[in-house]
Nucleic acid binder design. Sequence first.
RNA 1: GGGCGCGUAGCUCAGUUGGUUAGAGCAUCUGUCUUACAAACAGAGGGUCAGAGGUUCGAUUCCUCUCGCGCCCACCA
Length: 794
Amino acid sequence: MKEISKHYNPSEAEPKWREFWEKEGIYKFNPKAKGEIFSIDTPPPYVSADHLHAGHVMSYAQAEFVVRYKRMRGFNVYYPMGFDDNGLPTERFVEKKYKINKSKITRSEFIKLCLKETKKGSETYRKLWSLLGISVDWTKTYSTINDHCRKISQWSFLDLYRKNKIYKAKKPILWCTTCRTAIAQADLEAEEKESNLVYIKVKAETGDTLVFATTRPELLPAVMGISVNPKDKRYKKLIGKKVTMPLTKKKVVLTADVATNMEYGSGVVYYCSYGGGECIEWLSRHPEAEPTELILPNGRFSQAGGKYEGMKVLEVRKMIVEDLEAVGAIEKIEPIKHSVYTHERCGTDVEYIESDQWFIKILEAKNDFLKRGKELKWHPKEMKKIYDEWVENIKWDWCISRQRYYGVPFPVWYCGKCGEIILPEEKDLPVDPLEEQPKIKVCPKCLSAGEADGGKKFIPEQDVLDTWATSSLTPIIAQKLVSEKPIQEKLYPSSLRPQAFEIIRTWLFYTIVKSHYHHNHLPFRSAMISGHGLDEQGRKISKRLGNYIPPEKIIEEYGADAVRYWATGATLGQSLKFNILEVKKGRRTTTKLWNVARLLSMHTKKPMLVGSKDKLEKSDLWILQEMNKTIAAVTKNFENYTYAKAKEEIDKFFWSKLADYYVEFVKYRLFGSDKKSKDAAIKTLSTVFFSILKMYAPIMPFVTEEIFQTFFRNMEKVKSVHVSVWPEKMKLSSKPDISDFESAIKAIDEIRKAKTKQGISLGAEIESMELKTKVNVKKYGVFLKNVGRVKKII
RNA sequence: GGGCGCGUAGCUCAGUUGGUUAGAGCAUCUGUCUUACAAACAGAGGGUCAGAGGUUCGAUUCCUCUCGCGCCCACCA
């Protein structure tokens, strides 16, 4: 055994082992290795998050604990790493950072900036992950904008198109006027906002005055109709009569509509194109109504807005109320709070405009998706509710086209003559229709119509795919990073999808959609959902609040093991406050481990496990028994992904049983002259400590590796503690009866208490002691006298 | 408005199918440099288990209601 330093120094040890793992390929996936495959569908983080914090650390560390455990259980672990560097989040990030927007920069310049930031971002992540000792295989990485992912993403489009799960249609859709793109229902966020409920008076042709209430008076120029409930006695006689809108003087017919709530406002509703989903639904029941294109994609009023043309929505809202007031058309204005849909990426109020977009059919298969959700093993299982609730409430097909720059292009051209959709061959993927023309020379539709001459020009689709349209394919993307076909089949469905709860409706749901349509099975067998990392006050960590210490700083000061130790404290699915005290406790645990190792090294050069010939004493049997209990509990907890509980069990055993008791119990034997007794103590201590080391290994990979390599290298023929076998229970002969050993421990406690009370050192030897604890002195006398340092027990 | 989760010692949290005196860590206080560790050890104090009611021989645990916090969802204009 090597001469060892007095203190464990993480800042020296950690880089050393990082390098070692990398060099030896400890975490590298070996397709030929034995063992059942355990594949992880690692979340590819948005590289646009340039400042990482404890929340990121927590959510990635959680999967990591389980992965390391599985590896030690003999699974052939496939742990790739991806970066999501495509799509709107990246674009928004670049726009904000460089204070530009889509309309003020050329497409190629913009993409260049995105690529630059993307590269920086993924380096930031990679650096932190390797500092933390996340055991991913760095030879298996992808970035969602690279060729590999674009190819798979476009293949997915072609496959779904062939399967008739994708369509293009012009209809009212969700639109963000800031990002100037269509968005999907999943991109919405409901936000409680202050608004005004404006009561507007209108004249019916009968001369009666009607009043309707609205929060969107600015849409008056796009009025489609006005309705009351058919059962509403107040208005029954007016149904079918024409009413004249103020200002615009537009005439619409008062219709009956069952969806009208008689209690709300005045019981009269007006519908415009489009005030919201309810207007679109109303239109489907009143096809005679005519929509007006009032709001343009840039959020300004069109010509149809008359005097308001060119103004922004909120400006018109203010102005039109003044104008209505001037003509005496306002009855009253009620300030209200109501929830408004905003675009989650930028916070802009969502508009509903008519537009030509691509959709994936999800409405028709809701029940299938619910069934898939049922098949999936959820950890914790309550998270399934979020999923179910989401799927049940889907109201729109998944709009996948974005009028943006930086993303995977649609593999689509249109015939310049007949508009026919032209798709590339699968083998030619990935394609960029803006840069290249289709391989076919003539539009097949034109050809068959005998118009071959006209169908030779092809117009590229300008849009890019929704970022989720690509990231919903991560299990397949990861699978295809491995070239061996028979192995590929075992990698997908993935064994585990670790992710945060807030992207259940997006990442998790969309991945299920894709997998269901492409392969008719689940994309992963189980999902492990993490909560939020919060700051010490329990607030969400954010760059804006600046309420976090950069993880690199914490690692520098306390070591990666200590930071990971804190992260282990999270109950799955629940938020975890950052707690520097837990980090410090982690640091103390590494020190403690180091100290026990030092003690052991003082007494043996070559630690060995307990064998059948060893003469074990009562305390040895006791600690081995306790070890067995701990191994069982820790294993069970890792199996259930309840690593917080697992850590607690190891801590309890290590600190309270081994360090505080057992080590004290055997000191007299270690320093005594009875060779056999000393030998048994050393072997027991080695055995127990070795298994503790292994149990801590998934949580604190660095210190455990340092100790393993320094002291236990000879124990197993493996390169690293992280590929050693998980500890198993030891078979114990029950010859010496130790069922009453607890009474001996109580007696020791009593001696310690007495000494403490007298203010004397526990190491000081006292003459005699009268025990109140009932203990078999004949059996444990020698033990008590030696451990308690009492000459005579009465 | 509906659903889910939470409310236990000053702080952060455990409390397994209801069962003696409700636990741990940190913090506080008192001792101890004891042949691994003072970054440690030994000990002590500290709780109407959010509140009210109910079921039960017995409730932190089960049921109902109330209050507070967090989250998810909902077209009520």
